[in-house]
Simulated assay, not measured.
Amino acid sequence: MRTKQRFIGVMSGTSMDGVDTALVDIDADAIQFIASHEYPMPDSLKQRLLNVCIGQQTNLAEIGELDHLLGHLFADAVNALLQHANCKADDVTAIGNHGQTVYHRPNGSAPFTMQLGDANIIATKTGIDTVADFRRKDMALGGQGAPLVPAFHQSIFQPTNSSVVVLNIGGIANISILRPNQAVIGYDTGPGNMLMDAWCDKHLGKKFDKNAQFAMQGELNQALLTQLLEEPYLALNAPKSTGRELFNLPWLEAILSQHSLSAPDVQRTLCEYTAMTIANEVKRYQVGETPELLVCGGGARNPLIMSRLADLLSEWAVMPTDKKGVDSDNMEAMAFAWLAQRRMANLPSNLPEVTGASKPASLGVLYFAEQ
């Protein structure tokens, strides 16, 4: 009896720097990485999505069109991965597609989260059953709908006698806290690359600050950093989650209107802001003599962020997840492949202690491919 099954995870994060796909084999809870591929997102589509994310006026026609275009983009990304990996669609049990988040508001009188990317198109165009809409069941149970990856981190990284914190630095930074004999904790710490990417794009016309070269030209401005650290979200207790609807360029520019700084100084300060908001949270969970901070996502390739985290967390071993055998660029796509496997097996995939949901649930909606 064949227990090993093949899954594809698809992730387009808040940075919107491309579509990450990962092909994995899963046998029980053991996951084996097979191949990955990054598929570009057209700049015109990214800009339209950004306009929605930061609250510019939109309409149902625009939302519907973006949903359609993203469905085709994600399907094309999966088909490109299949070709790259020389894998047949018939060999894949299911796709786990996160979708593109355009708004996430888990609090208030009408909590909701919205991810676009029509899974009917994905299933039809790839010929593979597709699991999507992972977050809303958790929210229906009173949870934040995020973060969902701590359950996956728990399945692949086990603490021994010391804390292991898995940090994903995408557009938003989130942490999964794994401590011996304690429940998993996980939440969004605040901005990851999002503000730095937006500032870099505005002043250099580049999608991100490669090797932190822009930031390294500037000097840290303490007054700006102090004001940034006053953001109320940072003081909230977990469970909590956030996104581009809060941390965006208009939010930043409103604060910068009270300062007169060079563009490199702002970039350097934003880099410090990301590192400090992460470190301030991580240090709260130190247990044992050899705590580890395992970093994945685009921020793991930013030498200044990694250096500052090592300085701010001097008692921790700070390293990319690559050192533990999991490619830092593929972690989230692999996580959604794992979430798809959990849904197909009708197994719980949220952690109520992380999201605040009232009970465990198998997350995601299944869209069948037409045979």
Rank of each mutant, 00 (worst) to 15 (best):
M114N: 03
Q217L: 13
Y103F: 03
I122D: 05
Q100H: 14
Q154D: 11
G127H: 08
S155Y: 15
N161I: 08
Q100D: 05
I185L: 14
V165G: 07
Q100M: 01
Y103C: 06
P159N: 07
S176L: 09
D209Q: 15
D188H: 05
A173Y: 14
V165K: 02
N168K: 02
P106W: 01
A198Q: 14
G108Y: 09
G190H: 01
L167C: 12
N86K: 08
M194P: 01
N107M: 12
S163H: 02
G142M: 12
H84S: 12
C87D: 05
I185D: 11
S162G: 04
N193L: 03
S109Y: 06
V166F: 03
A146E: 13
Q217Y: 03
G143Q: 11
A94S: 12
P150D: 14
H104Y: 13
T101A: 13
A94Y: 03
Q83P: 11
V164L: 05
C87Y: 05
A132G: 15
A146W: 05
N174T: 04
H153N: 13
L178A: 14
T113P: 04
T93A: 15
L81I: 00
N86W: 06
F157N: 11
T189F: 02
R105H: 15
A173G: 14
A151T: 06
K137H: 13
K207I: 11
Y103S: 13
S162D: 10
L148R: 06
V131P: 05
R136F: 08
A140D: 11
L167S: 10
D91E: 15
Q213T: 13
T189V: 09
Q182A: 13
N97P: 03
D197R: 02
N168Q: 15
I177W: 00
G143Y: 10
D209A: 08
N168M: 04
A119R: 07
I185W: 00
Q115F: 05
P111E: 09
A173L: 11
Q115G: 04
V184T: 12
A215T: 00
A212C: 12
I122K: 05
K125M: 02
M114Y: 06
G127A: 14
F134R: 10
D209T: 07
N161Q: 13
G145T: 07
Q144H: 11
F134M: 11
K210T: 12
S109M: 03
F208W: 14
A198Y: 11
V165E: 08
L141A: 13
R179P: 01
F152E: 02
S176Y: 03
L82Y: 05
K137T: 14
A215R: 00
I175H: 02
I95V: 14
G171S: 08
G142I: 04
T93N: 12
V165S: 06
K202I: 07
N97A: 13
D91P: 06
L141R: 02
A212S: 15
Q100N: 06
M114W: 04
Q182L: 10
Q144F: 09
N193I: 12
N174Y: 01
N107D: 15
N211T: 10
L204Y: 06
Q217R: 11
F134A: 10
T130C: 14
W199D: 01
G192W: 03
L204R: 06
G142L: 02
P159C: 02
